[in-house]
Design a protein around this nucleic acid. Structure first.
Length: 230
DNA sequence: AATAGATCCAACCGCCGACTT
DNA sequence: AAAGTCGGCGGTTGGATCTAT
């Protein structure tokens, strides 16, 4: 069946959000709450697609976001959950308060894949790599991006079946992988726990209240929010 | 200092399932 | 039952930034 576009593309902004747009979106959601994303842009005076507003709010402006570098503990949780759930980033994010699916997905693709390869573990199956592959992955000069299976873990022709085959592998991976699966999964929480440690002074201040977080985000130029892990 | 290549991540795209008409 | 709407998800991309030469 045909499907109409989610918005009038000719009259919507695209690309990076401006501070003013952020302010409008935050102000609107503060006043009216989340929901009805389709009508939100017009109501909030934004020339944006509703989907774009939702994404911006969920991935960046939401006051309960943790932000900052991932901890070793979070790394382990992500790895273990990925072994069980596969690329179900939203489910994984649901177990990591303050983290978004997009953030975890990016972090997986840029850091954890590499980390697992360095350990000689296939990030897709969580099984030990074959000898040659492991050697290649462990070689200092070989970056994970150079491994075809890494850049596109699911080829276009297999993407549909990607998860199911993963799921098949996953059960046996529980026995073959070198990962401790003693993971106690707590129910998803609505708000971040008090132990959500900020990683910067700014964040430490920001975590004092949701409002403060939003205000800090709006004060801070977009690119200064970028965090690198060198 | 210049610049080419590598890396990171915010944002977009298209698809899907649930729900409504 | 069919068609349309909407929110949500995962994959991908483009541009900014960093690093190496």
């Amino acid at each position: 069946m045909g499907r109409s576009p989610c918005c009038e593309k000719a009259h919507t902004n695209k690309g990076a959000w401006t501070r003013e747009e952020d302010q409008r979106l935050v102000a609107y959601i503060k006043a009216h709450g989340e929901g009805c994303w389709r009508s939100l842009p017009k109501a909030a005076g934004l020339m944006r697609c509703g989907k774009s507003c939702r994404l911006r709010w969920i991935n960046y402006l939401r006051p309960d976001l943790k932000r900052g570098n991932f901890t070793e503990e979070e790394d382990d949780v992500i790895i273990k959950l990925h072994q069980i759930l596969g690329n179900k980033w939203s489910l994984i994010a649901g177990r990591l308060p303050g983290r978004t699916d997009n953030e975890i997905k990016n972090y997986w693709n840029t850091h954890i894949k590499r980390k697992l390869l360095a350990r000689g573990i296939d990030p897709k199956t969580h099984r030990p790599l074959s000898g040659a592959a492991a050697a290649a992955a462990a070689a200092p000069s070989s970056r994970p991006e150079d491994q075809p299976a890494v850049r596109s873990s699911c080829s276009p022709e297999t993407s549909g079946a990607c998860h199911s085959s993963d799921d098949d592998d996953r059960a046996s991976a529980l026995h073959h992988g070198g990962i401790d699966l003693n993971l106690s999964i707590s129910p998803p929480r609505e708000t971040p726990p008090p132990s959500s440690l900020p990683t910067t002074t700014q964040e430490a201040e920001a975590t004092t209240s949701s409002t403060t977080v939003v205000e800090w985000k709006l004060r801070t130029p977009l690119k200064e929010n970028k965090m690198y892990h060198y």
